[in-house]
Design a protein around this nucleic acid. Structure first.
Length: 175
DNA sequence: GCCAACGTTGGC
DNA sequence: GCCAACGTTGGC
């Protein structure tokens, strides 16, 4: 699941959301603003307890930043009904709900992120990510990760942390 | 239901 | 800021 970690203003509102922002949240975060049907449908298929990678996009160093958990299954994305805000969709109404979100919670920030370049290397023919949806449909902001891909990526993240002599950050930020 | 035009995403 | 890739819209 992708979000933009660097500030960008739309209708005067900053759409930035990084893994550190999620880490600082004290309540489950609604993953709002998804406006592509394929991405929405992936969220509708998620179950509470599922895990997801937090991907930093449209930034200096795009890549997987960590792990979160789906803590609440899909419900209406009400940001579609707020005129003047970045995710407003005039075609969405109370009687015709087009967009959904799931609620997520922070679980882990990788000590060393897995960059897009590395993901592409792993996605070459014969590599562990050769079928990864995110690499095939680069513009989809929510895509599926297979069990094998999930395992491989977590192992790679653990290895990178070890090499760097660092530990993943596993706890919420406390103010 | 096809498909051209248009809009958006996101890496660079 | 450019622009390729691709999703969405709407005319027919």
């Amino acid at each position: 699941m992708k979000a933009e970690p660097e500030s960008r203003f739309e209708n005067g509102i900053d759409v930035r959301f990084s893994i550190d922002d999620l880490r600082a949240r004290e309540k489950p975060e609604g993953w709002d603003g998804i406006r592509a049907y394929a991405a929405r449908n992936h969220m509708r298929n998620m179950n509470a307890g599922d895990k997801a990678f937090f991907y930093h996009s449209n930034c200096k160093e795009p890549g997987i930043a960590g792990v979160m958990e789906i803590v609440k299954e899909f419900s209406e994305d009400k940001s579609a009904r707020r005129p003047g805000t970045p995710y407003y969709d005039p075609q969405s109404s109370k009687d015709n709900i087009r967009w959904s979100l799931v609620h997520v919670e922070f679980r882990k920030k990788f000590a060393v992120p897995i960059g897009l370049k590395e993901l592409r290397e792993l996605g070459k023919p014969g590599g562990p990510l050769e079928n990864m949806m995110m690499l095939k449909q680069g513009r989809l902001s929510v895509s599926r990760v297979s069990a094998e891909e999930w395992k491989a990526l977590n192992e790679i993240a653990d290895e990178k942390a070890k090499e760097a002599g660092l530990k993943h950050e596993m706890t919420k930020l406390v103010k």
